[in-house]
Amino acid sequence: MKLRVGIVGLGDAWESRHRPALRALSDRFEIRAFCAEVAHKAEIAAKEFNASPLDGFRSLAAREDVDAVLMLAPAWYGPAPILAACDAGKAIYCSAALDIEPRHASRIKERVEASGVAFMAEFPRRHAPATLRLKELIATRLGRPQLLFCHERLRKEETGPNGTRRYQPFSSATRELMELADWCRYVVDQEPTSVMGVEHDTDGNDKDYQMLSLDFSPEDRPGRGPLAQISCGRYLPRSWRDAISFRAPSALQVVCERGAAFVDLPSQVIWFDEAGQHIESLESERPVGEQLLTQFHRAVTSLVRKISDLEDAYRALHVVLAAQTSCQEGRRVPLDF
């Protein structure tokens, strides 16, 4: 079954992830309409895919020839396209689920649940070939995760057209922490029970480093279960290009019961056990974008409704907000989902 879709927003990953994936999956997806903050970009994309460029996301969601809405950038309209899709009864694929402001999160979650539509949030780290292979190794060779380390160096915030800053309810560092927290939850395969946060602010105006320690221990025995240390920062000026990329750490380091693994996204895993070092390159695996959209197609065309990703996005937001509370109050904050 071919799914007829309308696309709202053409974000940073359009050229590298979404466009190639939709081309490769042309037997499963037919693009009928585009709507983007920059009308010219929508017109170019619409011409390439023989679709219609539209001025508004509401008219796109209301079209009878659109079965699902792919929200591929947060842009200036925030979560409004999600609500429009819910009103129209259209399934939703959302690459901006982690960009929903805290004050809107509960309402969006309730509206999606009440509408009865399928909802899939885009978590590219989860579905990277290296992550899927890591999960296999944990189940078969390495054993249960004990310690996880993630660190991401970020560039300074960029501006959009005409020098305006793109819509972002959170700083890029906060959003990155949300995605990394979700990634660690996915790898450990259980819920954290508490979090501690640390922040560094050089000039009093902008945080240049944030860190959180995510504890998966039983509530009555903190520090006895899996522990994830997650951090990111913009402490290097954009002009220091060589310094930003110098000796970048692995995207994820995992110490398990019977070995350790170093993950470099999207497709390399180097792991160690008693037999020594093992290097696996997974370049031949299907790209992340294709895997994500294939799952969405399956979710929409099957009889099993999928909305769990929305709950996962909501929990990632809850974790990072709790880490901010921890930093402000100087204490460990319990997590109650």
Rank of each mutant, 00 (worst) to 15 (best):
V5I: 15
V8L: 06
V8R: 11
G9P: 06
D12R: 15
A13P: 00
E15F: 09
S16R: 11
A21N: 02
R28P: 03
I31P: 10
R32D: 09
R32T: 09
A33M: 05
C35I: 02
A39W: 09
P53W: 05
P53S: 10
L54K: 10
F57V: 06
S59A: 15
R63G: 12
D65A: 06
W76E: 13
C86D: 02
D87T: 05
P102D: 11
P102S: 15
R107L: 13
I108C: 10
S115N: 03
V117Y: 06
K135L: 14
E136A: 13
I138F: 11
T140P: 00
T140K: 03
K156E: 15
E158C: 05
T159E: 14
G160N: 07
G163S: 11
S171A: 09
S171F: 06
L177Q: 00
L180T: 04
Y186H: 13
V195P: 00
V195R: 06
K207E: 08
S213F: 02
D220E: 10
P222G: 08
P222R: 02
G223S: 04
P237I: 11
R247F: 09
Q253S: 15
V255C: 09
C256H: 01
P266F: 01
V269Y: 13
I279K: 14
E285C: 12
Q295S: 08
V300C: 10
D312M: 03
A313H: 03
A316S: 14
V320G: 01
A322F: 00
A322I: 02
E329K: 11
P334E: 05
